[in-house]
Design a binder for these strands. Structure first.
Lengths: 207, 207
DNA sequence: TCTTAGCGGAACGAACCATTCCGCGCGGGC
DNA sequence: GCCCGCGCGGAATGGTTCGTTCCGCTAAGA
């Protein structure tokens, strides 16, 4: 019976898997995913035939979230720089693990058609954010969307610091990096997006 | 007979281990280190009693190289910003793997006294580089040496891209990040350290 | 109360890896 | 020229980890 309860259960597994894989890497054990999701391993295997399949579904779900974040940022922020900045902060928000899949945009190992289709969409929406910011003169002209991918690739939780300070450190680091992207003229104008209200905006709405 | 040949052999093992651990992580198999060094596994075990010991020696050797790079940068570059920039480029130079150990500065798991002693020295020499650049007004005042550590932590080869473009991408990324560190006044003056002669300076002198 | 669908966790087998063991090749003595 | 060890490289070993499967239990419905 594929009811709403089943769907919620699926969602818990995917979310737990996303978090675990983001923290421990794709080599993380299935038992860890099961523990985090509050289910037994067998329940995962009843829904997904293999770990490979679970990983694929995690990636697909993450891509969907990325697209949603990017579209929301474009729609809700009038300033293109704030939109781009908000998008990156959101994708890297502690525990979401969304940013982890972004570097895999570059990978070409042929996955399913659905996966490749989403790869394309994500690329387009990020490119749109970047182009908006460049047209507004708020982003250096020599940056393109592959640079943003490059940043995501390095901004993932490299080492398991396991401290609560990790979120704070990551936010600081992202801020430094964003400064490097900003075009010279705009670096002086406008408040840096690091005020309390801004941080609140980045943190609410758990995915 | 501990001759110069033996010392060279030791050095080959340590260097191979540094590269392998940098690329594959500290969990990389000993057999890989042996292959890279062109020796058998047993030869490594004849010199180092366990993998743990080898890792410790690798870290110590890497710290020594970091200190040497930092001191050379301070001595040979008259401009403090160029010194800091050169130091980071050198530590992250493709294949050196030196930068990989820097994040472990923060770790407090008590290693040997020699290790802790070197930790201290590395911290001091990086702090000196940072303070020089701040005093010269070329580095944002709100940056300190732990920020540099944070950057190293993220700048390590996150994903095994395995392309030759990786070096190029890393250099570009480091450039972006450094822009974010530069103080506003100095961002406009002086040529960005990205000319051909500069790159040559960063690349020669294999460690 | 009896049945049974579905769950959680133990069990199984394969793969990986640190460490040890063994046979061979080669350089030095006779 | 021939023998003898020393030291080497790589195969063997034992243990651990993890993907996947199997089994006994529980709780809901009849």
């Amino acid at each position: 019976m594929p009811t709403a309860a089943t769907a919620r259960h699926d969602d818990a597994v995917i979310r737990a898997a996303r978090e675990v894989f983001a923290e421990l890497g794709m080599a993380a054990p299935m038992s860890e995913v099961a523990k985090r999701a509050g289910v037994g391993v067998a329940s995962i295997y009843r829904r997904y035939p293999s770990k490979t399949e679970l990983v694929e579904q995690v990636r697909i779900a993450a891509f969907r979230l990325v697209i949603a974040e990017a579209e929301a940022a474009r729609a809700e922020e009038s300033d293109p720089w704030r939109a781009l900045s908000r998008f990156m902060h959101r994708c890297l928000r502690e525990g979401s693990g969304i940013g982890t899949v972004l570097p895999q945009l570059a990978e070409q190992h042929a996955f399913s058609a659905e996966f490749r289709n989403l790869q394309q969409q994500v690329a387009e929406v990020i490119e749109a954010l970047v182009e908006d910011a460049k047209l507004a003169g708020e982003l250096r002209a020599d940056i393109d969307w592959t640079d943003v991918l490059l940043l995501f690739k390095h901004l993932n939780p490299a080492l398991p610091t396991s401290e609560s300070r990790r979120a704070e450190l990551r936010a600081r680091y992202l801020g430094l990096v964003l400064e490097g992207l900003r075009s010279e003229g705009s670096a002086l104008r406008g408040p840096a997006p690091d005020t309390a209200e801004w941080r609140a905006l980045c943190d609410n709405r758990a995915s």
